[in-house]
């Protein structure tokens, strides 16, 4: 048996009136993989992920998620798919425990709500009304609700927008744990480069509704490894051969080059390059 990808997208298109939100997008997510769809606001991330979730219609293209077309998904498919939407404001009057116990009832083999509360770090808030939670706590509840049914595939849309750095790190640990010990396949939308780098096996950069790069974080940086940046007091130069350049500079200054730094391009440079070129 050849491994069919968990998510397979070919030539996906979606327009809203004159706006082309998704313009011929191709994407594969293999079983057990964590893939980040990374792109600026308005790039088409939410439209894409909601089409994969069976929540929005598409104008063209082939989509297969867990072997099914999500636009015709049934409830057994829903059991295997977990969704954390970009924003939510529901459940306000219930407590965290009530919400988790309630949603556990929809699934044939749910997680234990108490253990799940612990897993997402909300034990101290178990009896608090959902509307009293902070943004980060609410987001963790959303994730708990997304995984309460033990999904094989989890969709996360901008899971950490508005988090402080510490909360973001704790959240990343949780996602790594899901991917690592539980083998959950994850497709996550984000506009934070660091998040993609920290979590993803593969990063697909989306700009203007198209994938402009799709590789491991390391390979993305490697694509432009030739261009090392050398900076000094009076200048800056990109080069393939930093040693030669530094030797030349040393000669020119007759000794120590003032304020010399040599840097490999970061993923951020690559990303800014990519979204700059594409737009």
């Amino acid at each position: 048996m050849t491994a069919t990808p968990t998510v397979r997208v070919r030539g996906l298109r979606r327009t809203y009136g004159d706006i082309v939100a998704v313009a011929g997008l191709d994407l594969d997510v293999g079983a057990g993989e964590v893939v980040a769809l990374l792109g600026p606001n308005g790039a088409g991330k939410t439209t894409t992920i909601e089409i994969l979730e069976g929540h929005r219609r598409r104008d063209a293209g082939e989509v297969s998620v867990l072997g099914h077309d999500p636009s015709r998904a049934d409830l057994d498919w829903r059991v295997r798919v977990g969704i954390v939407a970009q924003a939510s404001g529901d459940l306000g009057e219930l407590t965290v425990r009530e919400a988790l116990s309630h949603f556990a009832r929809y699934y044939p083999r749910p997680r234990d709500p108490e253990q799940l509360t612990e897993l997402v770090g909300l034990t101290a808030k178990a009896t608090a009304r959902v509307r009293t939670l902070s943004g980060g706590q609410r987001r963790r509840l959303d994730v708990a609700l997304g995984i309460v049914g033990r999904p094989r595939l989890l969709f996360l849309d901008e899971p950490t927008t508005g988090f402080d750095p510490q909360a973001r790190r704790r959240f990343w640990d949780l996602i790594r744990q899901l991917a690592g010990t539980e083998g959950c396949t994850i497709l996550l939308n984000t506009h934070y480069l660091q998040e993609a780098e920290a979590l993803a096996d593969r990063v697909a950069v989306i700009v203007g509704g198209r994938i402009v790069a799709d590789a491991t974080p390391t390979a993305l940086v490697g694509r432009t490894a030739a261009r090392t940046v050398v900076r000094w007091a009076d200048g800056r130069q990109e080069t393939d051969d930093p040693a030669a350049l530094i030797a030349a500079l040393t000669g020119r200054y007759g000794g120590t080059v003032p304020e010399l730094t040599v840097s490999r391009p970061s993923l951020e440079d690559v990303y800014l390059d990519l979204i700059g070129d594409a737009s």
Binding site: R78, A85, S88, Y106, Y107, L145
Partner: peptide
């Protein structure tokens, strides 16, 4: 929106 994403008839 949430309910449409869970296995609820």
């Amino acid at each position: 929106h949430r309910l449409r994403g869970v296995p609820m008839p």
